[in-house]
Computed example of a mutant assay.
Amino acid sequence: MRIIRFKYNDEDSILAALTDENKVYRLPYTDFMNLVNEAENQKVTTLFLVENVIATSLPIKESIDELSLLVPIIAPEVWASGVTYEKSRDARKYESTGGKTDVITCYDKVYDADRPEIFFKSTAARTIGPNDAVHIRSDSNWQIPEPELGLVINKDGKILGYTIGNDMSSRDIEGENPLYLPQAKIWKNSCSIGPVIRLAETVEDPYNLQITCQIYRDNQKVVEGTANTKQLKRKYSELIGYLIKDNKIFDGTVLLTGTCIVPPNEFTLQDGDRIEIEISGIGILKNDVKLPAPKEQLVGKIE
């Protein structure tokens, strides 16, 4: 069972259930956390509550492809995990050493360390949903998407559901100096999540999810990569444990778990590209790529 949000006529947003048969049922809740909290109040699972609604209602006439989907949850914060896959370690090492293999870097060390890399990625105002445009930085010449499984968690770190995340990254900025990581990761529209939240109780094995990323330019596929969450070095509980250790997080926080798909080193995103990230059992997150107009690149601009 998957949960979506969409815009419908004059209503701001609708929360709905999307079945595995791709039928859409409206839910009488304001947002995802409202649904989860009501299930807890009734001492039932979120799935049980959703199935009860479906049992006494009819699906809407529109198909999922006809809906104007919104970000499935307005996450107060998005955090991310780094160097959790071997491919990510190798890519970070390449960009920071110019391709040298005989140098031990901070990325080699964190890959083998007890403590994982956890960093702040985005706020609700910087996070977009399906079919909106991710932005590329005007001061970077080497930018890529990072397809990742996202964990939707509550303030105690419990996994409520799974979604797809795109952790946009400026490889040249981080490669120049690891201390530039916030600038390599955080800017307007630098994070997308969606198109759905798959309820945690409906995922049989979260360590066996197939991830595919395709990038199109002028309607031609220029990059394709695949991975599986079974390649993840760390457990989700381990990543969450370090995130919430001596830290306050909020209901509906999203934790991205790292990427194992990295485009070729000579590739960089361009204005007008299209990114499609698919995770089995969840869906496809689609975003166009945009280089903001000069007026949108004002240094220090406050939204």
Rank of each mutant, 00 (worst) to 15 (best):
Gly258Thr: 06
Gln231Leu: 14
Val254Phe: 01
Tyr207Leu: 08
Glu238Lys: 14
Glu278Trp: 07
Asp246Arg: 05
Gly225Ala: 10
Glu238Val: 02
Leu255Thr: 04
Thr259Phe: 09
Ile240Thr: 08
Asn219Phe: 11
Ile211Asp: 02
Arg198Gln: 12
Val222Asn: 10
Asn208His: 12
Asp246Ile: 01
Asp218Ser: 15
Tyr242Arg: 00
Ala227Asp: 15
Ile277Val: 15
Ser192Arg: 08
Ile249Gly: 12
Asp205His: 06
Ser237Lys: 11
Tyr216Pro: 01
Thr229His: 03
Leu256His: 08
Lys230Gln: 13
Leu256Lys: 03
Ala200Glu: 15
Ile193His: 08
Ile277Leu: 10
Arg274His: 12
Leu256Phe: 04
Lys233Trp: 04
Leu269Gln: 03
Phe267Ile: 07
Glu201Ser: 15
Asp218Gln: 13
Leu209Asn: 10
Thr253Ile: 00
Glu266Asp: 15
Cys191Ala: 06
Gln214Thr: 12
Ser280Leu: 11
Asn247His: 13
Gln270Tyr: 10
Glu224Ile: 12
Val262Arg: 02
Asn247Gly: 07
Phe250Asp: 04
Thr253Glu: 01
Tyr216Glu: 13
Gly225Lys: 07
Glu238Tyr: 02
Ser280Phe: 09
Asp271Met: 03
Asp271Val: 02
Asp271Glu: 10
Gln220Asp: 14
Asn189Cys: 12
Ala227Arg: 07
Glu276Gly: 01
Lys233Phe: 03
Lys245Arg: 13
Asn247Ser: 12
Leu199Asn: 11
Leu255Cys: 01
Thr257Cys: 11
Lys230Thr: 13
Phe250Lys: 11
Thr253Pro: 02
Lys245Ala: 09
Leu209Ala: 11
Glu278Thr: 15
Lys235Ser: 11
